[in-house]
Amino acid sequence: MRRFSLSLEQRRGIKGYAFISPFLIGFVMFFLYPFIHSVILSFHTVDIQRESGYGLIWEGLENYRYMFRVDPDYNRHLVASIQNMFLNVPIILIFSFFAATLLNQKFRGRTLARAILFLPVIISSGVVMRFQDDPNALRSLLEAGLSVDPSTGAQTGLRSFELSLLLNQMLPPEMTPYVSYITGAVDRIYDLVNASGVQILVFLAALQSIPPSMFEASYIEGATGWENFWKITFPMISSWFLVNTVYSIVDTFTAYSNPMMIKLQRVGLEQQQYGRASAMAWVYFAIIMLLMGIILKLMSKRVFYYE
């Protein structure tokens, strides 16, 4: 009899399953099942019959062959997405960390500044962005013969053209790629700022969680603000760089404006090539996971955990 009796902790633990049961049900029904199903779909052609449901026709690796060898856009979009990620994620991280540091300081009007900087959390990926990404709206502006900034869809005269000219004249020619990286970031500043809302929030919360006693102690020992930043602030929130990296990578890969997302939606929903769309999504996802794994592996070695 003793063998079957459970400790208090264990009996309590069983009730834990009750609390997470919504998640367990949802995970099986709305995640695991479609997840496995989409793997199966990717090897089939889906044949829709209106009354009796849908049938699957075995294709083997045909869908995979098609997207790499026949489809004109897939490889191009794939390379562009990966390139975009490598260009944007570092800038987003640096910018959001910088903005969070600014917002963490005490100054007049801080509440207003925070409210404005968090505004992208509310409007980005939403309807306004939709309007800005709308090619028709852009085209109609172009037709009207105005100078248009493709990133904002609004009229603007300020571009980094002068900046890049200036920097290229000042610096030796072998610096040109770096210059164009920075000026490119200036051109895309609207997108980058809009993609950083959540990351700023996370960094700000992380900054607030550093115990102030650490700064007091180091200040008494004679450390400067610069030293404090690199010796205390930076290591203390380094683990949150990891979190934000994951978030930013997922976010840039799955943004509504990402050409690959548009492509997937077109193939799956409009052309109703469900099997083909699944295969495309799967390869895309596998590559994201692979890249994320490598990046996290490299980063997590340098992350400091305070216990």
């Binding site: 995640f31 989409s38 779909l41 997922v250 890969f253 997302m261 469900y274 999504a281 799967w282």
Partner: peptide
């Protein structure tokens, strides 16, 4: 894992589901 996997991966199956 559910945070990391983009919803687009399972879109088609979810639709059929």
């Amino acid at each position: 894992f559910t945070i990391i996997v983009p919803p687009q991966t399972i879109t088609t199956s979810l639709y059929l589901h």
